[in-house]
Nucleic acid binder design. Sequence first.
DNA 1: ATGAAAGCGCTAACAT
DNA 2: ATGTTAGCGCTTTCAT
Lengths: 329, 329
Amino acid sequence: MATIHQVAKQAGVSVATVSRVLNGQNSVTAKTRIKVEDAIKKLNYEPSLLGRNLRNSESRLLLVLIPNISNPFYSEIINGIENTAIELDYNILLCETDTNAERENIYFDLVRKKMADGIISMDPAVNTDTLIRLAENHAIIQCSEYAVDSGIPYVTIDNAEAAYRAVKYLIKIGHQQIALINSDKKYLYARQRQLGYQKALEESNMELEDSLIVHTQGLDFSYGQQAMKKIFMQKERPTAVFAVSDMLAIGALKEIHNQGLKVPEDIAIIGFDKIAFSNMTHPTLTTISQPMYEMGEAAADMLVKKIQGEEVESLILDHELVIRESTLG
Amino acid sequence: MATIHQVAKQAGVSVATVSRVLNGQNSVTAKTRIKVEDAIKKLNYEPSLLGRNLRNSESRLLLVLIPNISNPFYSEIINGIENTAIELDYNILLCETDTNAERENIYFDLVRKKMADGIISMDPAVNTDTLIRLAENHAIIQCSEYAVDSGIPYVTIDNAEAAYRAVKYLIKIGHQQIALINSDKKYLYARQRQLGYQKALEESNMELEDSLIVHTQGLDFSYGQQAMKKIFMQKERPTAVFAVSDMLAIGALKEIHNQGLKVPEDIAIIGFDKIAFSNMTHPTLTTISQPMYEMGEAAADMLVKKIQGEEVESLILDHELVIRESTLG
DNA sequence: ATGAAAGCGCTAACAT
DNA sequence: ATGTTAGCGCTTTCAT
């Protein structure tokens, strides 16, 4: 492993000149440049990022915090983040918190200790206080879930409006008993989507029945299935279900099938996110499309700007109701 | 941002002593230790990993190479890798190649330039020559897909045997016309699984019909769906389908439904991987279970050992045939 | 037990 | 256009 010194010696120039060639500065004669390039080739030299990063006080690493990599919703966002990061000559450090504060802290240490230049947090369960304190000295962006009035820039969608539209649509096609499968109320998006659900019901003078609202402990399929079981235990069966994520909706769909019922004939169902799977279920799932890839792109862009000291504005991107088979008929 | 010098000054000791306290060396008096710890607290000092890493010539980062983060098969493996890495005080740099050589090279540069201490490659499309050359100077482990006789340690399963068992089972329950939805033959696992398929047919004196073997260009649902369409265009319809991944199987299932046929009554179907979603389809999918989490753990363990200069042996883990509804009846 | 000092590999300010 | 040199923040050898 050659160092810049050996290259300098081999080329018969100073390390400064080698550095200049390395960084594409134009104050180097073509002749010298060639000499240096030859030496680099001959020695098979690769500049060490450890040295460069220490000198530049940067790591060019972005920390991406997600609760769970197995959730396809995050995969798509990460896609967007990574492509943008590469474009800007950054790389991403993927960190799964499993909604575990201790784990989270290990990752936060990475930025405290300068091993990461900034954070994109997508963990709804993140400790907001810690995050805000961290944001005083470090570049942080929130993606999807965010802390209101924290001063931390975020990129998200209008959750209340999206849920409102979904439920409004169910009402429009004739549903009067609409269940809600929501995640834990401690999450902002869960509260926002519930607000949209309630607003739609109220506007149509439909009663809000607590027995039709189920909160889950997690976002895996299994939680959706459990939630649907719970709904089936009520005296009156709803004619439609709105789930706040496709994963939950797909679990619910499974349970509806298990009960020998048909979607959408017996029960209609709407999900949220438009993950790839949602088009492979039978029937295909009506859902709210979130621009996941774009959210990732935007978050990465914003974070790098923030790292470079620019001010950045929060972003609310558009969503869309995608009507498919699970609400047809 | 305090440095070790400021801490030393504040505590009235030398930087060496601070470093000793930081690294838990016991050659420090309790009294001095307290002084240093107080100074650290007072100055809110966090040791810079940039400095430490340069000094130690390591990054404590593991590069994880995957073709596509959206494939749940990889998510589970990454889970195992990350948990093990954290345990060993490493972090992971997640890199999606999109089966793109240029992109791949950007990531390889990260280890060439010392920003990563080693690589776990899960990309079946990785350039084997490049990888082997890189392995001369760097720690590399392959996971799932591997290069035969390359000298690069790997962790995988017995693909031929797994496919053999799946097809054997289909034959046992009475199927005589079994289609194979395979991915591109350029991948080792694809060739191995096809070998298992062929062996099972041969053992039962069943003819190998080229028209029943379809190769896909990718692993998304859509490719499985397309493949199934192709199979339906043949004169005789198979009574069973073996797909080399759950994603493909789920796409095929979709197309079978679209044709108005029933699974398993009209066509049985077996997938591969046992991704979470394979239990949410209707009917649930019979599949080969790969120990994905364990593969990730093993790969990370092996890589860190390799980084530390130990010799490591390749590993072939157990698989299992999981019989569910899609082959019942 | 503690300190002084060298050096990991690089960049950039300053000098020529 | 090129070289000299300081220094980024840390660890560790060698003295004491």
